[in-house]
């Protein structure tokens, strides 16, 4: 074979099995095989699949100066990469390990190139460059996939958190409560207010209990939001009681100079509930024995 025609592409096609086993060996050497998370058989299947896709794409698309990884000819490679990245990172493989998992394919390819084109260093360097260009793209794409998946998860969790962190619960006929947790920013405060007012209409509630036991800090902003919510509840025709006011928060509110006129407050949820029962004309009594 004329050594000018020997390329990184032909090597992958012709020495497929050797390159695959060299890659698997290197994964182990680099310590990125993670047999604790992914079985060796699975890793081999994944590696084989990716290498096969790569081989096919190289045959059709080649890797000349016009190389472009977003070309449709590379679709199957990108798909295989996405799947493998997904499957591995979901089980706890880190992004660094994922990067090296892909990059460790290089050594086997370079080794084969060194052995088959020994006397032409220019050609060798060209081919090494071609291989590097492609494999770096693969590794970066894997990281991109990982980051995108993460971002999607964060986004979903954020919207879930807004929902979950302000669940309006009916505790009794005509009594609803919303336990607030964590930090209360303007956006969340708005959502809480909307949910609470909607629930008052839906449940025909007469008393709304806002439990701020789980609120980390109360600053002027948070106090203003609470005031607004209480005012809106009253406009709807229901009573509002804010409970879970710790001694520390009571001090803060007074020090901030925030006035809570016409707002009923109670120390804990139990007193809040007691107030609510009183408003709807109920009383809790001990059973006679």
């Amino acid at each position: 074979m004329n050594d000018q025609t020997i390329s990184f592409a032909t090597i992958i096609q012709e020495d497929f099995e050797q390159i695959l086993s060299a890659w698997l060996r290197n994964q182990a050497i680099e310590g990125v095989k993670r047999t604790d998370l992914v079985s060796p058989r699975e890793t081999e299947a994944q590696s084989r699949e990716l290498l096969a896709a790569l081989s096919r794409a190289l045959k059709t698309a080649g890797i000349g100066d016009d190389f472009n990884f977003s070309n449709p000819a590379w679709d199957p490679v990108r798909e295989a990469l996405e799947q493998i990245t997904d499957s591995r990172t979901q089980r706890g493989v880190s992004p660094t390990e994922m990067f090296w998992f892909i990059a460790s394919i290089k050594q086997g390819i370079f080794e084969r190139l060194k052995n088959t084109v020994p006397d032409n260093s220019n050609h060798l360097i060209d081919e090494v460059w071609n291989a590097t260009r492609l494999i770096n793209q693969l590794a970066l794409y894997a990281i991109d996939t990982f980051v995108q998946k993460r971002e999607a998860i964060i986004e979903r969790q954020q919207s879930e958190m807004t929902e979950v962190s302000a669940p309006v619960v009916k505790v009794w006929d005509r009594i609803v409560t919303v336990p607030l947790l964590g930090t209360l920013d303007s956006f969340r405060a708005q959502t809480v207010m909307e949910n609470l007012l909607e629930a008052i209409v839906q449940r025909e509630a007469q008393v709304a209990i806002i439990d701020i036991t789980g609120v980390a800090t109360v600053d002027t902003m948070v106090a203003q939001h609470l005031l607004k919510t209480a005012a809106a509840v009253r406009l709807m025709g229901a009573d509002c009681v804010i409970c879970g006011i710790s001694p520390k928060i009571a001090q803060t509110i007074v020090h901030l100079g925030v006035d809570l006129p016409n707002v009923t407050t109670r120390a804990d949820l139990q007193s809040g509930l007691a107030y609510a029962y009183e408003r709807i004309g109920l009383r809790v009594v001990a059973m006679k024995d």
Partner: peptide, 13 residues
């Protein structure tokens, strides 16, 4: 006054 909508209550506040 009865029947104020939630959106109206929020706006007035």
């Amino acid at each position: 006054v009865v029947g104020m909508r939630p959106a109206v209550a929020m706006t007035l506040v």
